[in-house]
């Protein structure tokens, strides 16, 4: 083990010795960092840089043509019907995010609180609630598509058989209900995830705090409102950022539940689908255009995620 040069070896010999002993040499550090660094570079940095480069070129199928600067980006906002589909899809992603925050994450928090105390059934329900996200989004979409089928699906058949024919809607075929349905199915699939995170957060809150509040006469709701919820802020921050990233990259569930062009009439179209169509169903210049869209999506998601995270961190600091 090579010791780092020490200007004043006599000052605090013991501490310095310890420090040096715990500090591995630069080559050792490099060796340990290398695998992750290589993997990260090859699978994250390289494709990102590649997409950025692709987005500034013209393409003929897979063959790269001339450098065109920002023309692909400009095309995204000027070529019909892309120029109408993009803002619409963006709006749907925003709705998707807000709806998921309101439904999935609220339900996740509720389940976490309900499952925090009881001994009996805790494991069972946790497993049940987390089960759906072990299934592939494509399969979830397909299953719900069968359930919601307006002609043969069990949901509408049940509604009809109990005299609620008015509620038997073409859930995925009506623009008014299609996106909410997608949000609900997606929430059904992912609700276990915030539940686990919130559960871990709740378990991390010291029991003394709750007991002290209870002695002071606080109700359960009061404890949740004034102690548990504020102390969950870091977890809420993480859940919000992960939900945001997940929702703005949404593809699998929407694709298998609704379809590649976000039917009906684009009512469930999201950025992921627009990207997919541009890349795999577009013209021969699709590669450059799709790369441009990917770059924009990445920049937007990255910026907002960092922003939200910073905001939550400040909020935590202020609370402390």
């Amino acid at each position: 083990m090579t010791a780092l040069p020490n200007a004043n070896p006599d000052a605090k010999p013991r501490r310095t010795w310890r420090k040096n002993a715990m500090m591995p040499s630069v080559p050792t550090i490099a060796l340990f960092i290398l695998p992750a660094f290589v993997l990260y570079t090859v699978f994250m940095v390289y494709p990102l840089v590649q997409a950025l480069i692709f987005s500034t070129f013209e393409f003929n199928g897979l063959v790269r043509g001339d450098f065109v600067g920002l023309q692909n980006f400009q095309q995204l906002f000027s070529r019909y019907p892309l120029n109408e589909q993009l803002p619409r899809a963006f709006g749907h992603n925003v709705a998707f995010f807000l709806g998921t925050m309101a439904i999935q994450n609220t339900a996740g928090l509720l389940f976490a609180v309900l499952l925090h105390k009881p001994r009996l059934g805790k494991r069972f329900f946790r497993t049940v609630f987390t089960m759906p996200y072990l299934i592939s989004p494509i399969v979830v979409g397909y299953l719900w598509r069968l359930m919601l089928n307006p002609l043969f699906g069990p949901i509408n058949n049940t509604l009809k058989s109990i005299g609620l024919s008015d509620l038997a809607k073409p859930w995925l075929g009506d623009p008014a209900t299609a996106l909410p349905t997608v949000i609900l199915v997606n929430a059904w699939m992912w609700v276990g995830f915030p539940m686990l995170l919130f559960g871990a957060g709740l378990a991390g809150i010291e029991e003394d705090l709750r007991e002290a509040a209870r002695i002071d006469g606080a109700s359960n709701w009061g404890i949740f409102q004034h102690i548990e919820f504020p102390l969950l802020t870091p977890v809420i921050g993480i859940v919000t950022v992960l939900t945001f990233i997940g929702n703005f990259n949404a593809f699998g569930v929407v694709w298998s539940l609704a379809g590649v062009d976000g039917p009906p009439a684009g009512a469930t179209d999201v950025l992921g689908l627009v990207f997919y169509r541009t890349a795999f169903d577009g013209g021969s210049d699709a590669f450059g255009l799709a790369s441009a869209l990917a770059v924009l999506m990445f920049l937007f998601i990255f910026t907002v995620s960092v922003g939200v995270q910073t905001w939550f961190r400040r909020l935590e600091d202020r609370m402390q």
Binding site: N149, P170, G173, D174
Partner: peptide, 21 residues
């Protein structure tokens, strides 16, 4: 066409035909 036709998928429609509906 089927009621709420915008909710009827391609495979549903083929099923309508082969099931005699």
């Amino acid at each position: 066409l089927p009621p709420d036709v915008t909710g009827v998928a391609y495979n549903d429609a083929r099923t309508l035909f082969i099931s005699g509906l």
